[in-house]
Design a protein around this nucleic acid. Structure first.
Lengths: 259, 259
DNA sequence: AGAATAGTGTCTTTCAGACACTATTTG
DNA sequence: CAAATAGTGTCTGAAAGACACTATTCT
């Protein structure tokens, strides 16, 4: 009933599929998002989420070839951050599909469906400008203004997903280096949730959640910058879901306390 | 860098975007999924998830018109269930986006991205065959065999989402009629989780979760078919998130208890 | 009568969160 | 020394889950 007869897509309005990435990192205790300045119309010079088309082609025998959306997102992220695909730093980045945005007029030129992705990264170097994105950089969340297309909406959706994921997955470890202290981990929660969890309770809770972190067997070389004892170092554990979860404080944004 | 130059999509391999729907309902205490028999190649006569193309067109002035993916999913669901769009029964159906599946060769004919949706419905009538789907019907989950395309994967993804959503949202009420007993609600959890929660604890828990259900002020006319007192009737409350959540029993499928 | 079910009471264990406190390190 | 921080101890209240029990209604 709704199948284009004979599958001749040229008889139909052409559509395109892109990926857009909400890449988050933490710098100086603040959540930052990777944005690029657009180098062309529409929204020329406006900031936008990094992204691009999902590539498709055919081989000599007419077989379909191309990227999965996941692969396209990983490629775009590598391009925009200037990191080498498959490099250790990129491999520690968590990348997951968020949702697909497909309002008919979200791009004025043609029908474009955007598969949005969410990425969690430890502090990455400032990207070098290149390609058709005039420039790219990490922008603190509270400095984000009007973005191109529907990217504000996509960003908001990604933020809420990120906040929720910290509760029941160990993904906070994707925001810190391979070895980290409990305090560094707590700083991740503070930055993403906008509220610092109680230090003592947080400490005990992280250590009592099986598979969250494992002791790296070493201590920091120095105490905190403003005093305090040295602290133990940990590595990410093998758990993929936290049990019990680390619940957001009730007054943090969008805990969803019913009514 | 990855923008097709000049945005002439005809210079590029054409792509299509469809919606596919994992529509779930409960019949006789068992979870069922809506499937259609394909009326054409590929996968002729194979069962598949209902779905179809997201429609796009242009108006007289060249402006882009068309459906959002949400609208396309709602339309397809109406078509395949044989219900009137906007009818009260359809309006009680919960419909949400699941994920987008876009492996390059998931459809042998051309590059097709499928935006998958999840639908929760109270017991709906058997759909009448019509359109190009040779037939459609509700199939018990344990009778589902190999589906067309990657629809087994999409179905599995939808099931896991459904199980998780029952925990922290009141969506179980979408599976029952407008007025229901606590036992009927418990039967929803039993069917979706594959394990019947403890009746007494479930009862107390549902009533103590704010906004989950509200008293409808009436009782059933008869007790249970095999005896037992009459029970109180409830309606869905206004909560969108349950707090506290109804946790799945630890031995239920995929609780993800971390090691 | 006997079986099944609705709904309540109670106890134990687990966990979240508040608070206090000690030990260690920096400036 | 004063301030800051790591890490632990302890208490309270909320909630999950097990179990028992009463009352009601069906065959």
């Amino acid at each position: 009933m709704s199948t284009p007869a004979g599958y001749d897509p040229r008889a139909y309005e052409p559509v395109a599929v892109t990926v857009d990435i909400v890449a988050l990192t933490i710098r100086d205790g603040e959540l930052h998002v990777l944005l690029v300045e657009r180098g062309e119309e529409p929204f020329l010079k406006r900031l936008a989420l990094p992204g691009g088309f999902v590539r498709t082609s055919r081989n000599a025998r007419g077989g379909i070839r191309g990227e999965t959306p996941d692969e396209a997102a990983a490629r775009e992220l590598a391009e925009e951050t200037g990191l080498v695909p498959g490099s250790p730093r990129l491999r520690r980045v968590h990348l997951e599909q968020l949702a697909t945005f497909g309002a008919p007029r979200r791009d004025p030129r043609m029908r474009v469906f955007s598969v949005a992705y969410l990425a969690f990264a430890a502090d990455l170097p400032d990207p070098v400008a290149g390609g058709d994105a005039a420039s790219a950089g990490w922008v603190p969340l509270d400095k984000v203004r009007r973005l191109a297309f529907d990217h504000n909406e996509i960003l908001a959706y990604g933020l809420e997903r990120a906040r929720a994921k910290l509760e029941y997955t160990p993904l906070a470890t994707s925001f810190v280096g391979p070895e980290f202290t409990i305090s560094e981990l707590r700083a991740v929660y503070a930055a993403v949730w906008g509220k610092d969890p109680h230090a003592g309770n947080f400490h005990r809770k992280v250590l009592s959640t099986p598979g969250f972190v494992v002791d790296a067997g070493a201590m920091t070389q120095r105490g905190g910058a403003r005093g305090g004892p040295r602290s133990r170092l940990y590595r990410a554990g093998r758990a993929t879901l936290l049990h019990p979860a680390l619940l957001r404080p009730a007054d943090a944004p969008a805990r969803g306390r019913s009514r």
